[in-house]
Design a protein around this nucleic acid. Structure first.
Lengths: 358, 358
DNA sequence: GTGAAAGCGCTAACAC
DNA sequence: GTGTTAGCGCTTTCAC
């Protein structure tokens, strides 16, 4: 792995100038075939590969798009741990959000000739992965709430940034492009379904604290309740810290142990919690959906694997990745005006067994 | 997006030299706190982010690892298309190999402070994605048969490269590090199970042409047959071009229509084909596993979703990604000797319904 | 603790 | 077609 050969080495070995070597790689047709072959030959002999760094520096573009997402490793490990024996589903069947988005972005990036740089953002500060990614790509997407707002603000001044999933955080970031899913619409429809089609009226909503996504979903829930004349509080009936299976299981116990009539339906702000609830309910001998309905949100693979299968709202994460890339590419090619773009992707309420359908 | 601010801008604005600005980002402690704050402040005001390219050029390292994988988009689209209505499983539940490997690599890379650059390799030539990736990373992994051997040969002279899945191709690449799974062992055990535990003797093996993985798997199959005195040919009973569901379905028809006694078991070289076979068998009214056993290979998520659930051999793709990163990092830090490493990861034969178990 | 200066390997005018 | 010459923005000795 001594020192990598450079244009100079190749130029010297093939008796041309470095400019010609460069041309062979950038625009082969601008070099006489014979010369080109000679250059390519010595490049091969030397083991020459153009330095992406030097190229990027000189040409001011990298041909790479990026994605920053939250460090899910902890919650993930946790959910794996408490899933318990016999249920390997979480381990490899469950595609995380980030996986889906990565896939979508990679596909779209490929179509446009870009590669994809991915990194989970750990710590903040100047040493953050965010800065690293930002410094190495032509533009990138960030999963909402992954990084401090102010950092994004700074970075978005020098390159296109698109925020994914999760509403606009504040007016400060109003100049950022932004793609979200129809959280409110999806939850409103699901709640309406429970009320009108299944005749349920005692609904309990469970979500995390301080999550804009949860807030949007709860808003839809509340709207549907009010529209149907069903009582609903101003906030979720129960708030958890992390939206994991463990927390969903615990929340279910707490809800069932509360005095007063048992809820007819448990509406969770995500699938993971709903799955945890399913476990708890089975343990307690409460039948789903006969005794109580359960719904989730997201449409993760696991939602189709559990029994009963989970009624949920599917989010088009893959498409979100694709749209993000399309938008970035448009920005980079100047096809997109100055105005910030705000896009809302439709979701798909999916009725399965846990609400009493089928 | 005008022109991005540089060290010079920050230096000037904060009244220090560019060296100091650089130090603030590389080694904050080597700068007096007061100076540091001043620099950071103007950086923030200017919207400064260090250029990864310039950094990489000057320091000769990128802090990025790479992965090149084959362009699966065609086969994937195909399998999605023919899956037909009502079966959305393929669409978002099925994690592809590459997804699993990406996840494994990303996790491991993160632990070591690296980001991950991923790219599907399309065309060959100097313009290939391979060269692009190679030029932008400190080291990378390649899914077997993704790129021409000679290209790898050249590149591996200047940076660590590890081949994933699939045996050594040739002696030319003997100096490359290499991680594979125990294809032969896994298939041998599965075939043995069918013969000894289920008493089956008329086995048909279906695999692709020219795939080293298939060759290794078939080898295990043949060994198990011979060890049990079961007749077996020198090659798979049927060879397909692509290992898709469609081909698996077609192959099943062909096999069942052949004259002579019907096979007691269909052993496919991957899960996708086996799933296709399941569809065909159901259509023809052949019961699985009562009338015929079916097995796959890989352990994709879909294998657990189909009915009957598919007996298969699970490959630890995620772990493969992790091991690849560990190996690359060891190479980069000089912790790994000069000798090429060759690693074989164990697989997990997984007995489910389609072979008659459970 | 901070500054000055010499590259890192390539691209992009601009000449020839 | 091909060569010359400046940088691109940073890191890195080596002085001070």
């Amino acid at each position: 792995m001594s020192t990598a050969p450079t244009v100079y080495d190749v130029a010297e070995r093939s008796g041309v100038s470095i400019a010609t070597v460069s041309r062979v790689y950038r625009n082969p047709d601008s070099v006489r075939a014979q010369t080109r072959e000679r250059v390519l030959a010595s490049a091969r002999e030397l083991g020459y590969v153009p330095s992406g760094n030097a190229r990027g520096l000189a040409s001011r573009s990298t041909g790479v798009l990026g994605l920053c997402f939250p460090d899910y490793s902890d919650p993930d490990a946790e959910s794996e741990a408490e899933t318990g024996a016999g249920d390997e589903a979480d381990d490899d069947a469950a595609m995380l959000y980030s996986d889906q988005i990565i896939r979508g972005m990679e596909r779209a990036a490929r179509r446009h000739g870009y590669a994809l740089l991915i990194a989970a953002s750990l710590k903040g500060g100047p040493e953050s992965q965010l800065a690293k990614v930002a410094g190495r790509v032509d533009g990138f997407a960030v999963l909402a709430r992954t990084v401090p707002t102010e950092d994004l603000d700074v970075i978005s001044r020098r390159q296109p940034v698109v925020m994914l999933a999760g509403p606009r955080e504040s007016d400060d970031l109003d100049h950022l492009d932004h793609i979200e899913t129809a959280n409110t619409d999806g939850q409103r429809e699901l709640t309406r379904h429970l009320i009108e089609d299944h005749g349920l009226r005692r609904l309990a909503y469970i979500g995390a604290e301080e999550s804009p996504d949860v807030a949007a979903r709860f808003r839809g829930h509340a709207e549907a309740c009010r529209a149907a004349g069903v009582p609903v509080s101003d906030a979720p009936d129960l708030r958890v810290a992390m939206m994991t299976q463990a927390e969903g299981a615990r929340a279910t116990d707490e809800l069932l142990d509360r005095p007063g009539p048992r809820p007819e339906a448990l509406l969770f702000a995500n699938d993971q919690m709903a799955v945890g609830a399913l476990h708890t309910l089975e343990r307690r001998g409460v039948r789903v959906p006969d005794d109580i309905a359960v719904t989730g949100f997201d449409g993760i693979a696991l939602s189709r694997l559990v029994r009963p299968t989970l009624t949920t709202v599917r989010q088009p994460m893959r498409r979100m990745g694709e749209e993000a890339v399309e938008l970035l590419v448009r920005r980079l090619t100047g096809q997109q005006g100055k105005e910030p773009v705000s896009m809302m992707l439709p979701v798909s309420p999916t009725r399965r067994e846990s609400c009493g359908c089928t």
